[in-house]
């Protein structure tokens, strides 16, 4: 009895769905074409170049995940401590080199100083007395000594301070940020560390030596930090031989930033405020604090979140990232 009932339900549902209707049945439902207009051209049958999509196959073939896993590491030990799920709209955006190019050019233009300046003949100091008589000397006519053809004269059409900045739509620029991060993620070059974890702890022995006043010279202390940073980076496969690393933290981390300043060949450390798309694309990998990455994504998702006021505050404002899966 139960089986029969379900079969009956299935049949009823199937008859409701559009795909179950045959073409002939569907044609009878359509509005018939109007007879009032007729094409002037000779009508040829349409070539059979389009293929209909098999709906069931399309369903099965491509169903992209809405979240991607992100491992959170400990710093500097590089121990995986947690697994989180992040939105695919944040870290799994398809690569668009053109958009990255637009963003990098936009940033380059924006950061041009544009202070080149020359003086025109009207700005060069000096008297505007006529250098020599107009006629009778046998030489060329000449006005003042600021003439562009003279040495020490003004520069015609020379550079003047100006703004080189170009425009880029905010949504495109924000997409470029996420594209760059996604590119790093897919290549396994995005190492996410814990919140505020990106400080380089130094051996306790160092603290003891400094406390005992044995490392008075600044050079020694800097050398120690530099060597320690080199060791940490080499041990984790982040160093010079592995294409350098960019460290991104939410603020200035004394030891790390100082040490990385000593070993520029091993990488660079950046405050979140100083990062742009080009920095994300430059070195071998990004080692980034989790909250810095969240903040970065929060600032660059204008194409994902609406600016329209939504009355229901319970609705998610955008894609959600950083949900703990394991750990």
């Amino acid at each position: 009895m139960a089986g029969k009932g379900i079969r009956g339900l299935n049949e009823a549902l199937r008859s409701l769905s559009l795909s179950s209707q045959t073409c002939r049945e569907a044609a009878s439902l359509r509005i018939p074409p109007s007879n009032f207009t007729r094409s002037m051209a000779t009508e040829a049958p349409l070539p059979n170049i389009t293929t209909s999509v098999n709906t069931s196959a399309a369903d099965a073939s491509w169903r992209p995940a809405s979240t991607v896993p992100v491992t959170i590491f400990d710093f500097p030990s590089f121990e995986p401590v947690r697994l989180e799920s992040w939105s695919a709209k944040h870290l799994h955006v398809p690569l668009r080199r053109d958009i990255l190019h637009l963003a990098v050019v936009y940033e380059g233009d924006k950061t041009r100083q544009g202070t080149a300046s020359t003086k025109t003949r009207w700005e060069v100091a000096g008297s505007h007395r006529k250098m020599r008589p107009q006629k009778g000397t046998g030489r060329a006519r000449l006005g003042s000594r600021q003439s562009p053809m003279l040495r020490g004269g003004g520069k015609p059409f020379g550079p003047k301070p100006r703004d080189f900045a170009t425009r880029l739509n905010r949504k495109v620029y924000d997409l470029a940020w996420r594209t760059a991060l996604s590119y790093r993620y897919r290549r396994g070059e995005l190492v996410v560390c814990g919140d505020g974890a990106l400080e380089l702890p130094l051996p306790g022995e160092f603290a003891r030596l400094v406390g005992a006043g044995e490392l008075r010279e600044e050079e020694l202390r800097r050398g120690f930090k530099a060597k320690w940073a080199r060791q940490v980076l080499d041990a984790n496969g982040w160093g010079r031989s592995c294409g350098r690393s960019t460290f991104i933290a939410t603020g200035y981390r004394d030891n790390l930033f100082e040490a990385m300043g000593e070993v520029p060949n091993y990488g660079r450390a950046l405050d979140l405020e100083d990062v742009d798309v080009k920095d994300l694309l430059e070195t071998g990998r990004l080692v980034i604090e989790r909250d810095a990455l969240l903040e970065m994504l929060d600032r660059h998702q204008s194409d994902l979140v609406t600016r329209v006021f939504v009355a229901n505050a319970g609705l998610p404002k955008g894609p959600e990232s950083g949900k703990v899966l394991v750990g």
Binding site: P76, S77, E199, P201, L202, P203, G204, E205, F206, A207, R208
Partner: peptide, 11 residues
């Protein structure tokens, strides 16, 4: 107390 921050025990 001789140990510094976390991996300081590396010594």
């Amino acid at each position: 107390s001789l140990r510094g921050p976390a991996p300081a025990t590396l010594q």
